[in-house]
Write a protein that binds this DNA or RNA. Structure first.
Lengths: 197, 197
DNA sequence: TACGTTCTTGACCATGGAGTCAATCTTTCT
DNA sequence: AGAAAGATTGACTCCATGGTCAAGAACGTA
C-alpha cells in the first residue's frame, strides 16, 4: 500500500497526483528530508492526507524517486557509455556524479542513502555502483588510474561528496565547485600520467 | 560574565571546575554541539547551573576551547616549522590538520566554525589560516604545488574535510582515512612533480 | 547558631519535526 | 435524495533540544 493503486474516489486520485507533483517539486529543491508539512502546503492538502495516501515519508519517496533521480543516473551511465578512453570514461562518470550531487539535493540524498532504504532506490544505487567498479577496473588495467584506488574508495568518494554538498554546497558557486573537482580527479590518476590542466 | 571570575562561594568554584572538566571530556569526544544536558550529567550538576555559571553554550565553549584545541593547532604549526622543504611543509600542514579533524570532533567544529563565533576561536582560526596561506605561496613559488590552487581553495579543503568527518568519520578507520588523504594531496601537486606512493 | 546572601535545582516554556486519529466532510451508488 | 463507504482535516501526542526562573538548599559570617 505504499504506492496506492487506484484509490476509489475522484478526490483521492486527484490528491495523490497533486501530492506527487508537489513532492517532486519540493524534494527537487530541498532534498528528500524536507519536512512533509512543506509538501502538504505545496499540494494544498493537510499532512494527514499524505500519510493516509502514502503511508509514510518513505512511501512518498518511493513514489517519486524514480522521476526524481533514476533518469538522471541512467543518463550519466548512457553518456559515459559513449566514450572510449578508459580514463575519460572513469573521470566523466565521477565528474557527472559529483555535479549531479551538487545540482540535485534529492539525488544526493539517494546516493548517500541518508534516508529509509527502499527497494527501487537500492537497485539504482547498486546498478550505478557496479558500473563504476567496471570503469575503475578498466582504467586501472589501462594504467591510467592509480592502482591503489579500491572500489571501496570510489564509494567513499561519492559519500564524502554527498556530505560536502550538504553542508558546503550553497557556499560555493557551481563553477568553483567544478574547478575544485579537477584537483580531486587529478589525484586519482596514475603517477606518471599527464594532467589536463 | 561569560568567564566567571572567582565566584564567591566554595561550591560554586567547585562546580565551575567540575563543569569545565566535564565539558572538556564530553566536547572532546562528541564535538562542541553536544547537548548541554550531557555535560551537566557528566559534571553531576543540573543544566541550570551551567547556564548560571557560563551564561550560554558559547560561554562554556569559550572557557574550554583553549584547552581543547589551541595547543593542538599550535602544535601543528610548530611541527611544520621544523620542516624545510616547501612541499613537505604544505602537505604536512594539511595532513595534520585533516587528521586533527578526524581525531577531535571539537577541533573540527572550531575549524568549520559550526558554532557561535567567539573571540579566541576566531583568532586561532585566522592565525592558522594566515600560516597556511604562507605555506601555499612558498610551495607555489617553488613550483611544487599547482599554481591554480588558491588560498580560498585551501580554506574550502578544510571546510569540506570538516563536513566529511562529521558525517562519514565513524564509517572509516583512521588508517583508511589517512590513506585516502594521499589521493587528495597528490591532486594538489604541480603537474610533473613525482608522487610519494 | 542563625541569618542573609549566593547557588542550585528541576520543572517549565518554546521550537520544530514525525506521525496518529476521531470527527467531519465528500463522493458515489441506488 | 439519502445513506454508506471513503477521504480529509487539524488538533493531538511524542521526542529532542535550547534556554529560563521561582523556590528552596547551602554556605559563611557575625
Amino acid at each position: 500500500m505504499t504506492v496506492p493503486e487506484q484509490p476509489r474516489r475522484a478526490d483521492a486520485r486527484r490528491n495523490v497526483e497533486g501530492i506527487r507533483r508537489a513532492a517532486l517539486d519540493v524534494f527537487r529543491t530541498g532534498g528528500l528530508t524536507t519536512p512533509l508539512d512543506e509538501v502538504a502546503r505545496a499540494a494544498g492538502v493537510s499532512k494527514g492526507t499524505i500519510y493516509h495516501r502514502f503511508g509514510s515519508r518513505r512511501g512518498l519517496i518511493d513514489a517519486v524517486v524514480d522521476d526524481l533521480v533514476a533518469e538522471r543516473i541512467q543518463g550519466i551511465i548512457a553518456a559515459v557509455g559513449e566514450l572510449d578512453e578508459p580514463l575519460a570514461r572513469f573521470e566523466e562518470y565521477l565528474l557527472r556524479m559529483f555535479l549531479l550531487q551538487y545540482d540535485e539535493p534529492a539525488a544526493n540524498d539517494v546516493l548517500v542513502r541518508a534516508l529509509p532504504d527502499s527497494e527501487p532506490l537500492l537497485n539504482l544505487c547498486e546498478k550505478a555502483q557496479e558500473f563504476a567498479f567496471g570503469l575503475l577496473r578498466a582504467a586501472q588495467e589501462a594504467g591510467v588510474i592509480r592502482p591503489d584506488l579500491t572500489p571501496d574508495d570510489v564509494n567513499h568518494l561519492i559519500l564524502e561528496r554527498g556530505a560536502i554538498v550538504r553542508s558546503c554546497g550553497c557556499t560555493q558557486s557551481r563553477a568553483d565547485y567544478q574547478r575544485r573537482l579537477r584537483f580531486l580527479l587529478d589525484g586519482l590518476r596514475s603517477n606518471p600520467f599527464p594532467r589536463t590542466s
